[in-house]
Amino acid sequence: MTSTHAAAPPNGDRRTAKQKIAVRLEPWLYSAPVLILIVAIMLVPLALGVSYAFRDIRLLNPFSGAFVGLKHFRELAGDGAFRGALVNTLWWTFSSVILQFLFGLILALLLNQPFKGRALAQALCFLPWAVPSFLSGLDWAWMFNPVVGPIPHWLYALGIMSEPSNILSDPETAMWGPIVANVWWGIPFFAITMLAALQAIPKDLYEAAEIDGAGPIERFRSITVPFLAPTMAISILLRTVWIANFADLIIVMTNGGPADRTQIVASYIFTQAFRRLDFGYASAIALVLLVLLLAYSMLIVILRQTMLSRH
């Protein structure tokens, strides 16, 4: 290897500045449509919405629009309905997510076994996801109604209820109505993601574990759970945030009642915006919810990072 070139090694890249910029720009060109859409349709309105939180915006009042500073937030601090809604949101979100996840995981495990008619069973079990949220809320409201629905009569026959009444009109039980509807509607989401993750686990791992003498429970603990964990974590996180913001079922089924016992923050925002037409106040609440959800997501992400770095 004699080196005649040693004095000045030729430059590796002699592209013109223009060509280099084109290369740099390439990923941005692909992302541009999505970015433009999101910025124009979501980010700019979001910023406007955030600004509304500090202004007096009432839709039917032509004199509104003035800057009011932190007035809405001071009001919010003393708003008992809002505090109640916060507690209800926690209740609504976590019971929905936990139940959806649990039943979704079980369904995924059931469907991961080969059996005759599996394709059909899978299609039917996932069907609720195709139903628009509005319609499923309506449907479940009917089913909980003792006049036109069977559920109160079944509960009565089972001895759970002393008389066939509507759980949606009882402040003690009302929240369970939307939660059940939400679980019915949301199981497929978890089942689909978990099933996909399950099918990506190499089968020979199970065979190896079985030969090593691991029973079904041990196999589930030491193979299935670790393989599913990343998918579980991310889908639970996304779902929690999504459900906390998801007011359709509650608005259709109970409209926050009775006595605000099913009012969650998202439905409270809706009420403020569309019943009282007070967009300023509604935006202030939404901003608080956004901050809380961001804090929650950060917490989860940080937890996940520390857990990953420990391993």
């Binding site: 979501m42 509304y52 945030v241 939404a286 919810l289 956004l290």
Partner: peptide, 30 residues
């Protein structure tokens, strides 16, 4: 999926942010 570029994590953050707030909030501004 295919490019490594600065700003990718900002895009992911932006996409996640859009999932974080109630869409009701956007209706009036929109």
């Amino acid at each position: 999926s295919r490019f490594v570029f600065r700003g990718k994590y900002w895009i992911v953050g932006l996409l996640l942010l859009t999932q974080m707030f109630p869409l009701v909030m956007l209706i009036a501004p929109m």
